[in-house]
Simulated assay, not measured.
Amino acid sequence: MATPSRQMILNLYSSTLRTAKSFSSYNFRNYFVRRTRDVFRSIQAEKDASRVQSMYTEAVQDLAVLRRSAIVNQLYGGWRLAVEDPSKPVLERSDN
């Protein structure tokens, strides 16, 4: 397969970032947003075309896993943390 185009990489980045932001748990959401940015910065910095292709393929597979994980996390999100929204009570469930 040919090296992914810039547009393909940007589309994958936006899809992954959107999925990462859909986690209901604060810690998971922030971790996956940070991880997504780090992964795509490393793809952007890579010069070797075959390495970019393998990194892109791995990122596509990671997106599929991330989507499934986000769905499960939305179902069983748990309690909201105090750092998420200070105007709401801490004991409010995130799935309400």
Rank of each mutant, 00 (worst) to 15 (best):
residue 18 R to P: 04
residue 79 W to L: 14
residue 62 D to E: 10
residue 13 Y to L: 06
residue 80 R to N: 06
residue 8 M to H: 12
residue 55 M to K: 13
residue 46 E to D: 07
residue 81 L to R: 15
residue 6 R to K: 13
residue 58 E to S: 15
residue 59 A to H: 08
residue 3 T to H: 05
residue 72 V to C: 03
residue 81 L to D: 10
residue 25 S to Q: 15
residue 84 E to M: 00
residue 93 R to F: 07
residue 96 N to K: 15
residue 80 R to H: 09
residue 32 F to N: 02
residue 91 L to C: 14
residue 50 S to M: 09
residue 30 N to G: 03
residue 78 G to L: 04
residue 65 V to E: 05
residue 68 R to F: 04
residue 9 I to W: 01
residue 37 R to F: 04
residue 35 R to T: 12
residue 10 L to N: 14
residue 29 R to N: 07
residue 35 R to Q: 12
residue 16 T to M: 01
residue 20 A to M: 01
residue 48 D to K: 07
residue 27 N to F: 05
residue 6 R to G: 03
residue 53 Q to T: 15
residue 66 L to M: 12
residue 95 D to I: 12
residue 33 V to G: 04
residue 36 T to E: 01
residue 62 D to L: 10
residue 11 N to Y: 05
residue 79 W to C: 13
residue 45 A to P: 00
residue 9 I to N: 00
residue 41 R to S: 06
residue 24 S to I: 10
residue 33 V to H: 07
residue 69 S to G: 09
residue 19 T to P: 02
residue 47 K to S: 13
residue 73 N to E: 10
residue 23 F to I: 11
residue 53 Q to D: 05
residue 95 D to H: 06
residue 44 Q to C: 04
residue 69 S to H: 08
residue 57 T to N: 08
residue 9 I to V: 13
residue 82 A to L: 11
residue 17 L to V: 14
residue 59 A to W: 03
residue 90 V to F: 09
residue 9 I to M: 01
residue 85 D to M: 09
residue 13 Y to K: 06
residue 7 Q to A: 10
residue 1 M to V: 08
residue 23 F to D: 00
residue 23 F to E: 06
residue 4 P to T: 06
residue 70 A to N: 01
residue 78 G to P: 05
residue 17 L to Y: 15
residue 45 A to L: 09
residue 71 I to D: 03
residue 67 R to P: 00
residue 1 M to L: 05
residue 92 E to S: 13
residue 51 R to V: 13
residue 82 A to Y: 10
residue 85 D to V: 11
residue 32 F to Q: 05
residue 74 Q to H: 02
residue 28 F to K: 12
residue 47 K to I: 13
residue 73 N to A: 11
residue 82 A to H: 12
residue 90 V to P: 00
residue 48 D to G: 01
residue 32 F to W: 11
residue 13 Y to N: 00
residue 6 R to T: 11
residue 12 L to C: 01
residue 37 R to W: 04
residue 80 R to I: 03
residue 66 L to D: 02
residue 54 S to K: 15
residue 19 T to L: 04
residue 72 V to Q: 08
residue 11 N to H: 06
